Simulated assay, not measured.
Amino acid sequence: MQVYQPIGIFDSGYGGLTVMRDIVKLLPEYDYLYLGDNARTPYGNRSFETVYHYTWQCVQYLFSCNCHLVILACNTASAKALRTIQQRHLPAFPDRRVLGVIRPTTEKARAFTRSGALGILATQGTVQSESYVIEIRKFFPELRVYQQACPMWVPLVENGEHEGPGADYFVQKYLHELFHQAADLDAIVLACTHYPLLIPKIKAFLPKQIQVISQGPLVAASLKDYLHRHPEIEQHCSKTGRRDFLTTDSATLFSRQASIFYGEQVDARQISLDVI
């Protein structure tokens, strides 16, 4: 019998399920264990130290569940915690890896824009970290990157108001503020995993020629390539097509809300991080 060694997928709440959905679609043979830290969401307005502490707790929990590879399917955690975890803790875990969602997005940034002007829509925490600006500058210093924080978008999605007329004002507001920075933007990256649920609204207020980039397919393709290039990690990923879901808050609430993001019904289990 194959040992259960799932690929861990972490997010501060539900948003990472949009990334998991695309990963599972591309790599359905692997086992996956999703952990949402719903009891402490949102992470977007918390300090670097707090986000690092919370994220490392959750990564440790996934390590304890036999995950040798963990994906931080959360832009805030990727921006504020990934590098510290990789540098401070992973040397003690030579057979474990933790990856984020920013690198797979930024290394493809040049292909998104013809004008050379790229917009980033994100949480306040991700914007303040300047992670996208820094990473894109490494790969493509010629690109002009403009960021816009959208603090109301996650609450709209989390409360199921993203399809209603009440969302129109805040979608228009943040798009207007972004384009006020640069009128020649021709591509926008949704740098928060909640935002794909707002794509119909976003596109309704944009000219058709402007490309809207969702991270899920990019992260999935990057993961496939990573597993191919790192057989020493891939061999620790079991393949029975199993999907499990954990939350630090109410399992009933999570299971009900998760289907909006994942596109399928899920049966979650509540866990406590006190053991870490």
Rank of each mutant, 00 (worst) to 15 (best):
M1P: 08
I7R: 01
I9M: 07
I9F: 11
F10M: 03
F10Q: 01
D11K: 12
Y14H: 07
Y14I: 02
G15M: 12
G16H: 04
V19N: 03
M20N: 01
M20I: 06
M20H: 03
M20K: 08
D22R: 05
D22E: 12
L26N: 03
L27M: 03
P28E: 05
D31S: 13
Y34S: 03
G36Q: 06
T41A: 15
P42T: 06
P42D: 07
P42I: 11
Y43H: 09
G44K: 00
F48Y: 12
F48W: 04
E49W: 13
T50S: 15
Y52S: 06
H53A: 15
H53K: 14
C58Y: 07
Q60N: 15
L62Q: 02
C65P: 05
N66A: 04
N66H: 10
L72S: 02
C74P: 03
C74L: 05
C74G: 03
N75A: 12
A79Y: 02
A79N: 03
T84H: 13
T84D: 08
T84C: 12
R88P: 04
H89M: 13
H89I: 12
A92H: 13
A92K: 11
F93V: 03
D95C: 04
R97P: 04
V98R: 01
L99M: 14
I102Y: 04
I102T: 00
T105N: 01
E107Y: 08
E107A: 04
A109D: 00
A109P: 08
A109I: 01
T113E: 09
T113N: 07
R114N: 11
S115Q: 08
L118N: 02
I120F: 12
Q128N: 15
E130T: 14
S131M: 11
E135A: 15
R137T: 07
K138N: 15
K138V: 10
F140L: 05
P141Q: 07
E142G: 15
V145A: 08
V145K: 01
W153M: 15
V154C: 05
P155W: 13
V157H: 07
N159R: 12
G160S: 11
G166W: 13
D168Q: 13
Y169I: 09
Y169H: 14
L175R: 03
L175Q: 01
L178N: 04
L178I: 13
L185T: 00
L185F: 02
L185H: 02
C192V: 09
C192N: 00
C192W: 05
C192M: 01
T193L: 11
P196E: 14
L197M: 06
P200N: 05
I202W: 04
A204T: 08
F205T: 03
Q209W: 09
Q209N: 14
Q209M: 07
Q211W: 00
Q211K: 10
I213L: 09
S214Y: 06
Q215G: 09
Q215D: 09
V219R: 00
V219E: 05
K224Q: 14
H228F: 12
P231M: 08
P231H: 13
E232D: 14
R243G: 09
R243Q: 15
F245M: 00
A251P: 01
S255I: 13
R256K: 12
V266R: 00
I271P: 02
D274E: 10
